[in-house]
């Protein structure tokens, strides 16, 4: 009896491990496959590659359009991240620290774009931007991306502010610190992990955004996700795999930074 139930337990355990392995493989396979394919010597995407080379990385470095798109996307993500932090930080502090009627409603409205399909947002933004001549311009692109990064930022920052230790800001006030000093010396240092996380998230969201960029980048302003999209429409060579591999590594780097920041929070708070 006992032996039978132990065997059964062993079976269940094995099955659980297999299931977890299958799920991980399903989730990670497309990401991991990109790396061998990017070193393929073939002229088109195939598995397994018939030979190995670094020629698609060389091709990428010689592809002016991709390089320009990469530079633009990087700069755009940078601008968007900085602006997101500058706008969302005071907004989050105001929403978290003051109590007024309709505060919760306001938070819901501010974070609502998270729930909308980006194709709806993209279309709506396009309709407004066409009239203002913002399509295909840097200000237009930045504004468009802010629409999606700000709700994320607000959510993360509000959560971060909610986990600050109780009354430390009040305590600083009783010690003679002006509210601005309290923010600079107490609130800001304690919410640094949340700020780092917000920055990383904004950067990734902006850098990877396809739909809204497709709608409002126009033809003049080249962005990496848009250029990639157009590229694979006409060609199927492993160049896109090389670009993807670089993007995966970049994202991984940012996630690691975030993880460090979150770990930092665990040691700072308490």
């Amino acid at each position: 009896m006992i032996r039978g139930s132990m065997m059964l337990q062993g079976l269940i355990r094995t099955f659980q491990l297999l299931a977890i392995a299958a799920i991980l493989a399903f989730l990670l396979a497309p990401v991991l496959l990109v790396f061998p394919i990017s070193f393929s010597a073939d002229a088109y995407v195939s598995w397994p590659p018939s030979g190995w080379s670094t020629k698609w990385y060389v091709a990428l470095l010689e592809n002016d359009e991709m390089l320009e798109a990469f530079r633009n996307s990087f700069l755009l993500a940078l601008y968007v991240t900085v602006l997101t932090l500058l706008i969302a930080t005071p907004a989050a502090v105001a929403l978290a620290r003051s109590t007024f009627v309709g505060r919760d409603t306001l938070i819901s409205i501010f974070t609502a774009p998270l729930l909308l399909p980006s194709i709806v947002l993209g279309l709506a933004i396009l309709i407004i931007f066409v009239g203002q001549g913002l399509v295909g311009t840097w200000p237009g692109m930045i504004l468009g991306h802010l629409v999606i990064t700000l709700p994320y930022a607000l959510r993360v920052l509000l959560t971060g502010l909610g986990t600050l230790p109780m009354f430390v800001e009040d305590a600083a006030g009783t010690l003679g610190a002006h509210p601005l000093t309290v923010f600079r010396r107490i609130t800001l240092p304690l919410m640094t992990p949340a700020l780092v996380a917000t920055g990383a998230l904004s950067f990734i969201v902006s850098f990877d955004e396809v739909v809204i960029s497709l709608f409002i980048a126009g033809t003049q302003l080249k962005l990496l996700p848009v250029s990639l999209y157009h590229y694979v429409e006409s060609r199927t060579d492993p160049l896109v795999a090389a670009v993807s591999a670089i993007m995966v590594l970049g994202t991984l780097l940012i996630v690691l930074i975030m993880e460090r920041a979150m770990g930092l929070r665990r040691t700072v708070a308490k």
Binding site: M166, F167, D170, A171, G173, T174, G176, I186, V268, A269
Partner: peptide, 20 residues
């Protein structure tokens, strides 16, 4: 007067020490 100009020392139940 705002708190920061009252010159009163406050000890909080949760201590409210600055963790950083």
């Amino acid at each position: 007067l705002p708190t920061y100009r009252r010159n009163m020392g406050v000890m909080f139940q949760s201590y409210a020490l600055f963790p950083h």
